[in-house]
Design a protein around this nucleic acid. Sequence first.
DNA 1: CAAATTAGTTAGTTAGACTAACTAATAGAA
DNA 2: TTCTATTAGTTAGTCTAACTAACTAATTTG
Lengths: 145, 145
Amino acid sequence: MKTDQASNLEIADELHSAAIHLLRVLRKQDAEAGLSAPKLSVLSVLAFGGTATLKTLAAVEQVSRPTMTKLIQELEADDMVKRQTNPDDRRNQLISITAKGKSVFGTARRKRLDALARQVADLSKSDRQAVVKAIAPLRKLSGRS
Amino acid sequence: MKTDQASNLEIADELHSAAIHLLRVLRKQDAEAGLSAPKLSVLSVLAFGGTATLKTLAAVEQVSRPTMTKLIQELEADDMVKRQTNPDDRRNQLISITAKGKSVFGTARRKRLDALARQVADLSKSDRQAVVKAIAPLRKLSGRS
DNA sequence: CAAATTAGTTAGTTAGACTAACTAATAGAA
DNA sequence: TTCTATTAGTTAGTCTAACTAACTAATTTG
């Protein structure tokens, strides 16, 4: 197979399209899931990675600090995360997930992903294999591993 | 490998995360690309599929009709698409891409996807292979084939 | 110790999504 | 055939999440 610039562009195009359409499918679940994609994603980082500063979260999620400030404020208002000032550097807000956050995260994620999981289940064995094998490279593409 | 409900959920989760992060990478190119993701996507449908009604576009892009109305109005204001009433059913707006639309689409898409194409180029041969093989199944997941 | 840097917030704007309620056109049924 | 239901698209209003610019507070550095 050719892997020149043209075909890389075609691959990029397909991925771009796939990402847009996958997220649109998922967005339809949002209303009942009770937690939007960005918030779910932040909670996921905190659930699996533990405490983090706002700046770190913004970097990991690839959004600006003000955007993360707002997300955290809303999550905090809903008792999903808590923050405490770092005694060693009081500019830092150490943010962590609450028990409520964990529980809501678990159920909301499940709800949000259920439709997609069902579609994954409907794939043929070889299609599913292909998807599984692509996951690690996809992570690399957005600079997350 | 197990392919039970739990692991389907894990796959869904990874894809969800990958889609979110890929689009965030792409969004950073938007300012200079001059055409946002949704508009690019609509123009793509018109460029490859020819004339379509607003309703069809909304269905294909999986957004509501008002959302598509607004996108088309903005694209029309920029001379990227033109519309004409269907003489056989004057409720229908037949929407098509203009010459300017085609040209802007070509260059904007290239610009927007360039960063991603470069990252695809940086993948190892086997990683790229894995991504290529996943494309068809990914289309199935969002119901587009 | 003053200046520069860093972390986070506030204010204001924008794009793109939604629902509800509307107009206009067509199709169907009494 | 006319009145009703349906269909296509628009308008109005709201929401979330993104951005930049400009700010405060804390810390580091020259």
